[in-house]
Design a protein around this nucleic acid. Structure first.
Lengths: 226, 226
DNA sequence: GTGACTTTGTGCGTCTGTTCACAAAGGCTT
DNA sequence: AAGCCTTTGTGAACAGACGCACAAAGTCAC
């Protein structure tokens, strides 16, 4: 389930505050979900709390970590060392959760050789070597959109079966390869959509109103991509 | 719908390639969704294509942009200018889609005054002024986890009703305020989960096997937060 | 002008995920 | 030791999304 990491974070926060036991109600509130859903998730996961008391925090942390595969280390390569790649390389949340960054790669000769967050940027030509040598199992793609599919094909061919994609394209991959996508501008657009809704619908116009330019004579292009 | 931005991106890509008309089947493939779902989304949105031909690309771009509220400009403030905040400030996808960054703010005196991507970083004390002066309607929170809720409360009090949160906490906000969350390490954890599934279940153990340490004597802590 | 072909728009069955509500289970107090 | 109280685990109703499949509608060729 996609909610387990959220539970895990809430639990580790409780753990740091020295809380030993927690009810489904409290934990659900901390994670921002319904308590019945949380209980069903946890029971579906096999672990149990004790009725009348709640869940033991440490035990649950261990169970969820194991379920998520965080008891073993995962080796990550970051491809594309632009602004975003740099931020990812310096992101503390990786190392502290069992993700080891084995390499930073880029195609730009001006960037290759630079030291970023204690690592030397390698040339993209060495991609296959680095994946094989370090046993990389997760690739993070932070390249420009145009390069993403090509890089993706190469990492998949080299045996990587999990890809985290920050490039604004839909990657096509063979069966058995997982892709997750994070797109900053899409998140903003969704917020803009809701914001507009609050302000009273799209410009207050019904779609295809009398007087709107009909399809076929369209000049609306300049309104979207400034 | 959360899929409209994906359609829009696929459409603008087609537009740049000079494609005038597209069928639901083609567009669905480009967006990575089922064609019936795409047609239902588009019809639900009110706009139509012409049967036997498909959708006119330009007209659809205009309609979706209008629905998403991209025909107007949205003013954004980025709070927290660490690695991630810097990457966001330099991200080209904002300006090109009608999102104008009105301010970069941070609490660290060493960062305030620096110029990042052509903007001078302001002190967090000026938060309310900047929101009011520029008419900020979307706040991007890229602070450390501990500061996020406090910053969120302040931007909401200042009238912001949409928040994009990169901090690894669940923000609590009053009714009517939208929060979207992007969490890099959660994405990686979900990938790790699937990766482990491919490799044959969580360590190959059934939960709470005979011989496992029972709850109450737990020493598993060191396995999770290294 | 007519017929064949293409593609949209949508009714309907299905399925997954969510929530309610309650019985079973365990602890705590007296 | 007995009963009360809290909290889990889950059956069942509910809701929304999804996708198939087909009829309506329009185009294109001749």
């Amino acid at each position: 389930m996609a909610r387990l990491p959220v539970y895990l974070r809430a639990l580790t926060a409780l753990q740091e505050r020295g809380v030993a036991t927690v009810s489904s109600e409290e934990l659900a509130a901390a994670a921002g979900v319904n308590s019945a859903k949380l209980r069903k998730d946890l029971s579906h996961l096999g672990s149990y709390g004790t009725r009348g008391v709640g869940y033991e925090v440490e035990y649950l942390v261990y169970q969820i970590s194991r379920e998520l595969g965080l008891t073993q280390d995962w080796v990550v390569a970051i491809i594309g060392v632009g602004n975003l790649g740099r931020a990812l390389a310096g992101y503390g949340g990786f190392a502290s959760r069992g993700f080891r960054v084995a390499g930073l790669l880029d195609a730009d000769e001006a960037i290759v050789g630079q030291e970023i967050s204690g690592m030397v940027v390698e040339h993209i030509d060495r991609l296959e070597d680095i994946i094989a040598d370090h046993g990389v199992s997760i690739a993070v793609i932070a390249t420009p959109a145009g390069a993403a599919q090509g890089v993706c094909d190469r990492v998949v061919a080299a045996g990587v079966t999990s890809v985290l994609n920050f490039a604004p394209v839909v990657l096509s991959v063979p069966e058995g390869v997982d892709v997750r996508k994070v797109d900053l501008s899409i998140e903003l657009q969704i917020l803009a959509f809701h914001e507009q809704r609050k302000a009273g619908g799209p410009d207050g116009l019904a779609p295809l109103q009398e007087g709107d330019p009909p399809p076929g004579t369209s000049q609306y292009v300049e309104t979207v991509e400034a």
